[in-house]
Design a binder for these strands. Structure first.
Length: 703
DNA sequence: GGCCCTCGAGTTCA
DNA sequence: CTCGAGGGCC
């Protein structure tokens, strides 16, 4: 490809163009599949430039579908997003029989059931990938992965290639029915497929779950079709009606509709029988033919599921009883210290690589200084052998089959001899690192001035739950920070003007440190511009104020509704004890959180950084507390004995309707719900002329 | 003051 | 996922 495009014969030009187009398309596919290493970016750019030159010289031969034409159109760099109408939550875990008994007790208490039996279903927990299938009038219309639980990826075309997934359900199916379940790959199929992959020189997967996940997320559905994926249906999301009043009834309906369901699912009224089933499934684990990592229990009655409702991240009516994790032994070769966003110094174990649960692990978290010393927060020993020494043989496992953890020292092996001295200065900036009394964590003391903390803060700023800037991930932040192009959040938004003014050069690296092209620079700047009007909650979260996570940021956003309202309230709280009290009075905010936010709004450095940032972005006002329920925004107190529900249930219900539930009557109380036996609170409420309702009246009010 | 629940922060590997 | 710690209840 050296001949001058102008002088090339049309036949030769056409042949070369065809070849180039094919290579570029292949490279695009490989890149987006992120499967196998392909040609370098430099070579890609050169080939593309050559094709463009040829097309310019021979416009009559140009193919309208040429890969050069896709420039300007959004790259097919992934799947479209689908917002789950009902969030796809994870389950809380039980590890012991006692945990399971606690789970059952908690349900009984929450529902005020007394001695009534709670029937539970039990089914194997498939180690695969969750998938949501939306059926309308029995016809499959959409399939989505779990994603972060709120938003997943649209993998409809891929799901249609799975033979276990019916395109059409049989029988009497509600108008809208979103079936949820697990996509998995059988062990035998996995072994055979991986052999194929080796033969073809393609990527080898570590375990069936990764293979299933990789297969489901292929951009080319024909590849998904070639993978032997299977599916079990066990749950549902958005539905117009339900075919039964119990968990087991709905799953039975699934089977009638033609969906595959797990044959080992059973219903139990007796806890011992339930646990026996757990042990039976555990015994069959190796002969099932597919990977499972525990047994899931669910409250069978759906009306009870409804009353139990949800905690912030998981339902109260289900739990996963996990099998004991696989352990592996390896040598502790050293301990590294990482500096987090808040300056926390976290020790990480450097291990001789070892395979655990099908994955090679060479690092593992050690949590904190005490953990290395082998003691808990109270100084009580947590492991035989005590303090970890470099050179020890340690046992590790992957917590939740993901995060490697060091558990214990293998005291049958020769012990290490080198003690680890926890640093008292920050390894990133040499500033003193101090451990406050009563705290487990040692922290670098200079905040944003520490380069490690600054980078972590910036990463947090652009991260998914925060500003979520497409194409500006951790790697890019590190690179831009190292080049001095981005040293604080506001710098992200001035990249374009600085580039236009010729002050900086962005044509340097992409995610992998390879040269960028005009297109990726344009994409990045457009993505940044698209984030100039963030939701208030995301914006507050992005600031990275200590103790203010996603939930608390949301709380502040709903409370103050505007950036102006929030920032002026926090500034005022710094100067006026009464204003501070008002912040502490917000339900869910205490002294520590309030002071952290106040300190942030009083700090000169952060004030200046925020001012610069506010010149670039404009957070959009949040919705005030929902107002469409009769109790929204009201402060409610429950007293006396509630006869139709427990205190916890009443509180959860009231809060879900936008009410604030308080424990004591004050002038701020709007409503007192008094059951039999109400005493001083009722008297106080009457004295204060606060509206008082019986439990029946309350239930009538909220419908 | 102690207990329970929830939230925040940090973590691995592909 | 896990641990530590904050917040709120008893």
């Amino acid at each position: 490809m050296t001949a001058d495009p102008e002088t090339l014969s049309p036949t030769a030009a056409k042949a070369e163009m065809k070849l180039l187009a094919a290579s570029l398309n292949a490279a695009n596919t490989a890149y987006h599949r992120a499967d196998t290493p392909e040609i370098s970016d430099a070579k890609y750019d050169a080939m593309k430039a050559r094709l463009q030159a040829l097309e310019a010289a021979h416009p009559d031969l140009s193919d309208p579908n040429s890969p050069t034409q896709s420039v300007g159109a959004p790259p097919a760099e992934g799947f479209t997003k689908i917002r789950h109408r009902v969030p796809m939550l994870s389950l809380s875990n039980a590890f012991t029989d006692e945990d399971v008994a606690d789970f059952a007790d908690q349900i009984r208490r929450f529902l005020s059931l007394g001695d009534e039996t709670v029937a539970l279903t039990a089914e194997p927990k498939i180690d695969g990938v969750s998938l949501a299938l939306r059926y309308e009038w029995g016809k499959l219309v959409e399939a989505a992965t779990r994603g972060d639980g709120a938003e997943g990826e649209n993998v409809t075309a891929n799901a249609r290639t799975i033979s276990d997934v019916p395109h059409q359900l049989d029988g009497d199916v509600p108008e809208v029915f979103e079936v949820r379940g697990e996509v998995y790959m059988a062990n035998a199929d996995f072994a055979a497929m991986n052999e194929d992959q080796v033969a073809k020189g393609e990527k080898v997967y570590a375990n069936p779950r990764n293979f299933a996940a990789g297969s489901l997320r292929q951009l080319d559905p024909s590849i998904t079709a070639s993978r032997p994926l299977k599916f079990f249906a066990y749950a549902w999301g958005d539905v117009s009606a339900l075919p039964a009043e119990t968990q087991s009834g709905v799953v039975a309906a699934f089977a009638d509709w033609g969906l595959p369901t797990n044959p080992l699912m059973q219903r139990f009224e007796d806890l011992d029988a339930l646990l026996a089933h757990y042990r039976s499934i555990e015994g069959q684990r190796s002969s099932l033919g597919y990977d499972i990592d525990g047994v899931v229990y669910k409250v069978d009655r759906l009306d009870w599921q409804g009353r139990l409702g949800f905690r912030s991240n998981n339902p109260r009516w289900a739990i996963a009883h996990k099998f004991p994790a696989e352990l592996a032994s390896t040598i502790l070769e050293g301990i590294d210290i990482q500096v987090g966003r808040t300056g926390a110094l976290s020790p990480v174990a450097r291990l001789a690589p070892v395979t655990v649960g099908g994955v090679v692990v060479s690092n593992a978290t050690l949590h904190n200084e005490d953990y290395i010393d082998g003691v808990d927060a109270n100084g009580a020993p947590i492991r035989e052998g005590g303090r970890l020494m470099i050179g020890d043989t340690v046992r590790i496992y992957r917590a939740g089959d993901v995060i490697p953890k060091v558990t214990e020292i293998d005291t049958t092996k020769p012990r290490g001899t080198v003690p680890f001295l926890f640093p008292e200065i920050c390894p990133a900036c040499d500033a003193p690192a101090v451990r406050d009394p009563g705290e487990a964590v040692r922290r670098c003391t200079i905040g944003f001035a520490c380069p490690a903390q600054a980078v972590e803060q910036l990463k947090h700023f652009v991260s998914r739950g925060a500003m979520d800037i497409d194409g500006l991930g951790a790697k890019q932040i590190e690179a831009f920070h190292a080049d001095g192009l981005i040293t604080e959040p506001a710098d992200i938004f001035t990249l374009r003007t600085r580039l236009d003014a010729g002050q900086i050069d962005l044509f340097r690296r992409d995610a992998k440190g390879r040269p960028t092209n005009q297109k990726s620079v344009d994409n990045l700047l457009d993505a940044i511009d698209a984030c100039r009007k963030p939701e208030l909650a995301r914006f507050i979260f992005a600031l990275g104020i200590r103790h203010v996570g996603e939930t608390t940021a949301g709380l502040f956003a709903r409370q103050f509704t505007s950036w102006q309202g929030f920032s002026s309230a926090m500034t005022a709280a710094g100067n006026d004890p009464e204003a501070r009290d008002q912040v502490v009075d917000i339900d869910g905010v205490g002294e520590v959180m309030a002071d952290a936010v106040i300190a942030f709004f009083a700090d000169e450095g952060s004030i200046a950084a925020m001012e610069r940032l506010m010149g670039e972005v404009a957070p959009v006002d949040a919705e005030a507390q929902s107002t469409d329920s009769p109790v929204a925004g009201k402060t409610v107190v429950f007293t006396g004995t509630l006869e139709q529900m427990s205190r916890a249930e009443a509180k959860a219900k009231a809060e879900s309707l936008g009410a604030k539930v308080s424990g004591s009557v004050s002038t701020k109380t709007d409503l007192l719900v008094a059951g039999p036996g109400a005493g001083s609170k009722l008297k106080k409420a009457t004295d204060l002329e606060i509206e008082t309702l019986t439990e029946e009246e309350w239930l009538a009010l909220i419908g």
